[in-house]
Design a protein around this nucleic acid. Structure first.
Length: 488
DNA sequence: CCACAATTTAA
DNA sequence: TAAATTGTG
């Protein structure tokens, strides 16, 4: 059985390409390698809710998954091929499909979380020795076991990891195959509609639909626009939630509609061509891609991350469980406009600006003292980009429990953050419309406004908009006190 | 009690 | 966004 990303594909019959978080034709190494052999290619997607320890998709995930598959199926049809959809346990379904088409080779991109790795190993095990399996590394800049410290370990700190990655050679992107040889007959396929991935009554997906275009082509188009309009000035622009100045590649990367290697090369080539992009802006963008690799490095080399504090000192941290506070946070009704704007953006669009993710995360874990796992779970359920590595790593970062985390005692002041990053209040006004007529100087902290100002804007605190559910100063002191208990 | 408007809610 | 629920003349 062959292994590794440069391995030849063994066997001589049809090849099954098992697609997972790589729903694309461009820069997809196993797909390209399979097409290149000239042997029949069978692209397969398995919807697996049965294998143990695999995290179930959240609602927003499912919406994206549906539309991404629709788009991918169209792409394959355009190349004279056909995407096969099957539902069930990976270790049962993959061998079944291979048998059905007489395939003797299986190729796929590696996955890095424990649960998925177990499924992949179980599939390989179930296939036995008559089938050649080749695993590729198509979804990261580097395989996490290929970025080592000088002493042969793995990085727990971002900056040295980033410096090593910047120096490292990485593979060049591979173009989408121009076509695929068909098998004698394609395996039977489920109907996408039967997977029930879309919400029915009520259909809550309108806000998401308005905000996003799903699929490989949309990802490339959006990124081209981003390079034209936002790459120059990215370093400062990315921190302004009221501007549309981030790449918004996160869901496309999450589902693998575009690869990080492709983004890396496209951004570099663009900056090369247009000499006007300041190098610091390009660098900042590339470093965001490195953060994604760093998170996978943590997950793969030190996981699990969704459940266990990276820094075990926090295992005994006195988190509070308050259903009421958690629900107010989830609903965007904390009484802190910047926090509420973020939480409502998430609910409406399936996404939240990264700057604001930090603000709401700090508020949940430090002001409300609620366990970061609660926040992580909510994000997993509501984000279209909820990523097994980045979501967990970022929650541990903001909660202070992670590797190279924000120190727990660094507690964001939601008012200062709001004034600094949403200076004109456009972001708040967009997502918290009941405050839109307040003058900007009181918008960030409406409880400080005088009666007349509130009345003129039609705001009645406690009625049209909540009073703050907690006093930040007191909450800050309480958090520091709680931290004393575990800081040792 | 209805017709329609306004508001809430749904992963 | 749009269905479901609540409010109003």
């Amino acid at each position: 059985m062959s292994k590794g990303q440069d391995g030849e594909i063994g066997g001589e019959g049809p090849i099954v390409v098992w697609l997972r978080n790589d729903l694309r034709l461009d820069d997809n190494p196993p797909l390209a390698a399979a097409a290149e052999t000239g042997r029949p290619v069978v692209p397969l997607v398995v919807f697996d809710e049965e294998s143990k320890d695999v995290r179930q998709l959240g609602g927003a995930h499912k919406w994206w998954f549906h539309h991404s598959l629709e788009s991918l199926a169209t792409s394959f049809r355009g190349k004279g091929s056909q995407l096969t959809l099957r539902r069930g346990e990976g270790a049962k379904i993959v061998p079944e499909v291979m048998e059905e088409v007489g395939a003797d080779a299986l190729v796929f991109n590696r996955r890095y979380d424990e649960g998925s790795r177990a499924v992949d190993d179980a599939v390989v095990e179930a296939l036995g020795d008559d089938v050649a399996v080749t695993r590729y590394a198509g979804n990261l800049l580097h395989n996490p076991d290929e970025v080592e410290t000088n002493s042969g370990g793995y990085y727990k700190v971002y900056t040295p990891f980033m410096k090593t990655v910047m120096k490292q050679k990485r593979r060049a992107p591979v173009d989408a195959p121009s076509g695929f040889k068909q098998p004698d007959s394609f395996p039977k396929s489920d109907k996408l509609e039967d997977w029930d991935l879309l919400p029915t009554k009520p259909d809550w997906s309108g806000g998401i639909r308005d905000f996003w275009t799903v699929g490989e082509k949309a990802a490339h188009d959006r990124f081209a626009d981003f390079c034209d309009e936002c790459l120059g000035g990215y370093d400062a622009g990315r921190d302004k939630p009221d501007k549309d100045a981030t790449s918004r590649m996160s869901p496309h990367l999450r589902w693998g509609e575009i690869s990080p290697i492709r983004l890396w090369h496209t951004a570099n080539a663009y900056a090369e061509r247009r000499k006007t992009i300041p190098s610091g802006d390009l660098e900042s963008f590339l470093q965001e891609l490195v953060w994604r690799d760093f998170n996978y490095n943590l997950l793969y080399n030190f996981g699990p991350m969704a459940t266990k504090d990276f820094n075990s000192r926090f295992d005994d941290f006195p988190w509070k469980s308050s259903k009421k506070s958690l629900e107010a946070w989830q609903a965007g009704k904390t009484g802190y406009p910047i926090v509420d704007a973020g939480m409502r953006q998430l609910w409406e669009t399936g996404w939240m600006h990264n700057r604001i993710r930090m603000v709401v995360g700090s508020f949940l874990t430090k002001d409300l003292l609620i366990d970061w796992r609660e926040g992580e779970r909510w994000f997993w359920d509501t984000l279209v980009d909820g990523d097994i590595a980045s979501n967990t790593a970022q929650w541990q970062w903001i909660g202070g429990t992670g590797a190279d985390a924000q120190p727990f005692f660094r507690i964001f002041n939601p008012i200062t953050q709001s004034e600094r990053f949403d200076k004109n209040g456009d972001y708040i006004r967009r997502f918290v419309p009941e405050l839109k007529d307040l003058p900007t100087k009181v918008l960030h902290a409406p409880w400080d406004a005088d009666e007349e100002t509130l009345e003129k804007a039609g705001v009645k605190l406690g009625e049209t908009y909540p009073k703050p559910i907690i006093d930040h100063k007191k909450a800050r002191d309480r958090a520091l006190g709680a931290y004393d208990e575990v800081k040792g």
